[in-house]
Simulated scan of single mutants.
Amino acid sequence: MDKIIQEYCIGCGLCQSLGKAELICNQKGYLSPIKGDEKWLRTVCPAGGKQCASMDFNHIWGRIEAVYYGFSADEVLRRQASSGGSLTEIASYLLESKKVDAILHICASSENPTETEICISTSREELLSRCGSRYAISHPLSSISELDVNKKYAFIGKPCDVTVLKNFQKLNPIIAEMIPITMSFFCAGLPSIDAQKKLLEEMGCNSRVVSLRYRGNGWPGYATANLENGKQCKMDYNTSWGKILGRDIMKMCRFCLDGIGEMADIACCDAWYLTEDNKPNFTEADGRNGIICRSNQGVEIVQEASALGKLVVTEFTDYEEKLKHMQFYQHDRRATMFEKYIAMKICLKPFPKYPMKIRRYQKGVGIRHRLGIFKGIVGRVLKGKI
């Protein structure tokens, strides 16, 4: 098996569902292929880099047609969702306007709230009952072969999931016609099952968990676990994600070139308010998204939803200046990817097949910081941590 594809598998499940590969699950809960059609995998998997031909390397935020601040006009949804509820509201509009018959996405597992399952929502009620971030391992494309070829779907997934889908659609026009709309969100990584266990332990969960929300019911909201014994455990977002879940993520996530959903028609992020020193302010507030339209179709959808009063949007004209502070990690990960690439190559370690054009993202980032990233990667390799 191709070492790059094997080590940087995202575990979407598409290859196994189509009989293109056999996957195994490691101790962290992540999937990776042990055998399969290597040529097909190199074409479809994000680590193969085929999607890079469609990326805009001249702009660190990728392909952009329009950018807005936005949130759902439904105050209940706005509060319930992880941030502003924009993705759920747009998905609801797509159903109500008959642009699609169903939304293919991920929700909490009905058997284990720390796990996920694939769901197909066909109504606003279903979408609202399933909304919210799931910081847990998912395989959203593992049932794509079971979709109804006579229906149209919109897909909501992690940026890497959208990349796989887009790469696959180039090989399969039928799937491209079935799933004409893709939406995503800014993603900082996929936590392991060990991270899930640690989260519950640190929250003080001493009984079986019957429900778990990682965010929502406020912005950013609290990680909230309801236990079988009636107890409720909570933890603030900065601790749950910043100190626990975000510290133990999949290998590909640390070297992901597209945590910003560049391949999707629409990508949403937290448009955090900033402190005086340009740091994200995680004080509870009314949710607000950054809505990035990456295709003309995406622009049309957002504008139509806004015109009907579903979304409240305003132009985000200074996004290039503000986003690098609101979404520092996403900006920094892209801006220093070249240094990571060089460090891994020098250490003779497999690395995703990104083009040398990733060097263009360095603009505006100091050489001292980039050198620090380079040294950090080399150090982790020497210590056997990569």
Rank of each mutant, 00 (worst) to 15 (best):
I5N: 00
E300P: 00
A195K: 02
E320M: 11
I156N: 07
L190H: 04
E262Q: 10
D56K: 10
N172M: 07
Q327G: 09
Y30W: 10
D161V: 11
F338R: 12
L371G: 03
M263S: 13
M337L: 14
Q196S: 15
G366T: 13
G246F: 06
A343Q: 02
G62H: 09
P180N: 11
K322C: 00
G246K: 02
D56E: 10
A195N: 00
W61C: 00
C15S: 04
E117Q: 15
P280T: 08
Y68W: 11
S184Q: 10
R254L: 13
S92I: 07
M55W: 15
D318P: 09
R288L: 15
A335C: 02
R370K: 14
D148V: 06
L190R: 07
L18E: 02
F186W: 09
S54C: 13
E146H: 14
G379Y: 02
G221A: 08
N289Q: 03
K198V: 12
L348M: 15
I292S: 00
M252Q: 12
P140N: 13
I249F: 14
G48N: 00
A73S: 15
E300I: 05
V381M: 01
P159S: 08
F328P: 03
N296R: 13
Q16R: 02
F57D: 06
D101T: 06
I118L: 06
I292D: 02
F316T: 01
G372L: 01
T224Q: 02
P350Q: 04
V67Q: 05
L245D: 04
L308N: 07
F374N: 04
V312A: 14
T182A: 15
S145E: 14
G242W: 03
I144N: 00
N167H: 04
I266M: 04
L245N: 01
I64L: 06
L23D: 06
D101Y: 00
V210T: 09
K234Y: 11
Y329D: 13
S133T: 15
G204F: 05
C25T: 15
F374W: 04
S97N: 03
N278P: 02
L200S: 03
W219A: 09
G372S: 00
E262S: 12
G261C: 06
V302D: 03
I386V: 06
H59E: 14
T275A: 07
F374I: 03
I4R: 05
H369I: 02
G230S: 10
A271F: 11
H325G: 05
T317C: 07
R247V: 11
K383H: 10
T163R: 04
I292A: 00
G366M: 07
G85F: 01
I358V: 10
M183A: 14
G309P: 07
L95A: 05
Y93T: 09
Q303A: 08
C187E: 11
L41G: 01
V312P: 00
E126F: 11
E339N: 10
G189F: 13
L245P: 01
P352A: 11
K98E: 14
L245K: 08
F255K: 04
I358K: 00
K231N: 13
G48V: 05
D194Y: 13
G372I: 03
A81R: 03
H325N: 04
S306V: 09
K353E: 12
D101R: 00
V302N: 05
T283G: 14
